[in-house]
Design a protein around this nucleic acid. Structure first.
Lengths: 225, 225
DNA sequence: GTATGTTTTAAACGTACGTTTAATAATAAA
DNA sequence: TTTATTATTAAACGTACGTTTAAAACATAC
């Protein structure tokens, strides 16, 4: 068969362990033992540990970026020339993530956690891989954001996009832990879908904030100007 | 002398390397070689690598939490019984961070990056240490946020606080890189202080968001409830 | 059924890690 | 100066890592 059972077993185990523990903290021996395959199988099928990491992301991101492109096509079609609103754009992204066919019920949370890790763990090779492979839908999303927030200066928009990415990446990357804490504190169960939908209004409101901060003297007079 | 030069050299090197590369990705040999001390010095002075990580955080957080408590005292004094507003609370936090005496000009960004790492790298021992040592000012900040957002349900408030923490930690932890990108793209110079002040209205607006998200069918009918 | 290419296996490779040791050097107290 | 403490050093410890090897098992085609 083209894709041996082994390849998928490795990907399944790796994806779960990476999401749980991070990349450096997960050894090939953990992966192969969880996948019940021989240690050498990873290097035989993938070439290296880094290549395995890329393969784990590709299995997620390739179908996701296709789904996302379709969602954007659909959105732009529905808007018929007019630029989609900020809420619509964010919702298109969120729904694409949430609606993605998942291998299991933990799929989304694993996906989000991996994305968060990719953002925060400074794995140079991974960042390079993602930029090379998936810059197209990312750029399109940025363009939509720009059209949806014409009132913002380029500088303001830049920083606020970073704030959005940060809120999303951090929350989603620790979503399991945060859900656990919430359950212990308030006895409330939650899901990744729910968190995502809570995020949208928060982000949208932040992007639209009009307040101008009064600069305290310490900053105004600081040499950094 | 009570604190040998060696101890501080190790802390300086460790703090910088941890911020750059993360904890697992930084070896004691990197640290001791950067600090120009013997490898065994870390275990002699700190006991273990984990204890060194704790010491790096303690050197930051102990004076910071004192500064923060004073800022909150001051704020509550100025408000005379009435609960401080959301903006005031966030600004007290931001100013405490920005005004902290720094060992060097990269101090704040290293501080933020380390906090971000503590959040995302699943180092159980570190989370436990931080919770045990600094729960007091953290709890006080949470209390102020609660008083400043009485309109939010406990669950909403919980998630929105996570979003705020994420936006802050992420942006500040990569502030150097992000400032560089902005300069290359738009030729605009910026400082950590400025970013912090841009963050406050974004976060405050997000916390105050009133939009209620329309749940798509896929989520409403999901078994996760 | 033999030959060919692919996959799996057990074992070992070399390297790097955190930690410990035991000897030496430096400092302070008597 | 001698003695007791503290700090530094070079070397080694045992363990775990990613990767490679070479033989065995398996599959497929002739």
């Amino acid at each position: 068969m083209a894709h041996s059972d082994t390849v998928d077993r490795i990907l399944d185990a790796a994806e779960e362990l990476f999401a749980e523990r991070g990349f450096s903290e997960t050894s090939l021996r953990m992966i192969t033992s969880k996948a019940k395959v021989n240690l050498a199988a990873v290097n035989y099928h993938f070439g290296s540990k880094n290549a395995l990491i890329h393969a784990v992301f590709a299995r997620f991101l390739t179908p996701f970026s296709a789904t996302l492109e379709r969602a954007f096509d659909d959105l732009e079609g529905r808007c018929g020339g007019a630029p989609p609103t900020l809420n619509q754009t964010l919702l298109a992204l969120t729904e694409s993530a949430v609606r993605m066919p998942q291998r299991n019920e933990r799929g989304i949370s694993i996906f989000m956690r991996l994305l968060g890790l990719a953002y925060t763990q400074s794995q140079g090779h991974l960042r390079r891989f993602l930029e090379e492979e998936y810059s197209q839908p990312f750029g399109r999303f940025m363009g939509l954001l720009k059209e949806a927030t014409p009132q913002l200066s380029a500088v303001d928009r830049y920083w606020r996009i970073q704030f959005m990415l940060g809120a999303t990446a951090f929350t989603m990357s620790s979503s399991d832990a945060l859900q656990g804490i919430l359950y212990n504190k308030l006895g409330v169960e939650s899901s990744v879908e729910e968190i995502a939908l809570r995020l949208v209004p928060f982000l949208a409101a932040g992007m639209r904030a009009e307040d101008q901060m009064v600069m305290p003297a310490s900053v105004v007079t600081s040499p950094a100007g």
